[in-house]
Amino acid sequence: MSPGTRTKIAVLGVLLLVLLLVPILLPSAFHLRVAALVWINATAALGLALLMGQAGQVSLGHAGFMGIGAYATALGPKHLGLDPLASMALGTLAAGLLALLVGRPILRLKGHYLAVATLGLGILVHLVIVSEVPITGGPDGIQVPRLEFLGWRLVGPELWYGITGTVLLLAAWLALNLEDSATGRALRALHDSEIAASVVGVDVARHKLVVFVIAAVYAAIAGGLFALFNRFVTPDVAGFLRSIELVTMVVIGGMGSIAGAIVGAALLTVLPQALTLFHEYEHAVLGFLIILFMVFLRQGIVPGLAGLLARRRLA
């Protein structure tokens, strides 16, 4: 077995175990809701982790793609009479095309132009959602119709826990495969040195673009799932702060680590719920914890802990 395959099996195995254990240990609807939110955020963070960790590019407007997925799912049935699932698919397609359109010219340039462009893009998406009140419902948000599948009404936290968990598992499997493929190796090569990579024949711009589109599609799927699960979306879903939150998830968990993105998403989604104990000091404690993680596990939680373990084994 190659080391790549071994990591793949380990990550997917642990993820599957956690997915199965959570409903047994924490069966209340509230816990399952928070868990489902973790799986949704993790799906979006996964795509971003590929972009940041593998291609070395940052998207500061990633919530914009989530917003496109979420609002497509909400608006398709309302204005076009489409099935919510079909609208979600269209939204995902739209997000992918938009990423292609924006990424194509920009990713030809060196440096962090993508960060600037996506920053603007994210804010634009948010602005459109907020101001087009007759279409999007504006800042007060919009209801999303219940999902029906073959006559079944898909409701209840248990069911959505299962759906979001399965999607995350699939997303993680695809991401791990990508990492372990020729594209993944080409990406890591261009991350280390674009010149060296292009010398050995890697089409730098094309590879970056592929990951960027994949990341956008992941975010849009997460957004669509969120809309269907929550049955209510507000422009917050596409907000700038949400974009920063996604980047923070990836950085805290460990850039370039698929497992790290999931851990980061879990941490940033669960901690605010756990910290309500501290009342007024909630935000201070959250910030303090993030600083601690960044100081003591500088590469991020997953790579940092893995490194610590390896060093201890050697010593």
């Binding site: 609807a29 509230f30 507000t234 917050d236």
Partner: peptide, 15 residues
């Protein structure tokens, strides 16, 4: 954040 509000509403009811 409306999404947080919904989570907390669930928490108030369930927990």
């Amino acid at each position: 954040d409306a999404n947080n509000a919904r989570t907390f509403a669930t928490r108030l009811v369930e927990s």
